[in-house]
């Protein structure tokens, strides 16, 4: 979609995407999600048969669980921010 492309480009250009990343990182640390995921990773490593697990293996195993662990409040906060940005920029586009 053209609009999506444009919007995405705007997200990156303005640095807004970076800010969202940082905010998400902040919130996830605060709520302990990072710690939980770290724990999942370590468990995966310990249980893994291989001496060292690769990033791909870890990713396949941990990320699905990690997705579910994100608290709703954090999701809502980020979603609101994203939507606000998109709406503002879509309006501008149509002007």
């Amino acid at each position: 979609m053209k609009e999506e492309d444009v919007l995405t480009a705007k997200m990156i250009e303005s640095g807004e995407l970076n800010r969202w990343k940082e905010l998400l990182r902040l919130r996830l640390t605060e709520c302990g999600w990072r710690d939980q995921v770290r724990l999942l990773c370590r468990d995966a490593i310990k249980q893994g048969n291989l001496e060292e697990m690769t990033v791909d293996q870890l990713n396949n195993e941990v990320t699905p669980k990690a997705r579910q662990l994100v608290p709703d409040a954090v999701k809502i906060e980020l979603l609101t921010k994203i939507k606000t940005f998109l709406q503002e920029n879509t309006l501008q586009e149509s002007q």
Binding site: L24, C41, V55, L58, N59, V62, T63
Partner: peptide, 11 residues
Amino acid sequence: DASLGVIFGVH
């Protein structure tokens, strides 16, 4: 992306 970041850290 955040999840991958953590994974990178542990890895």
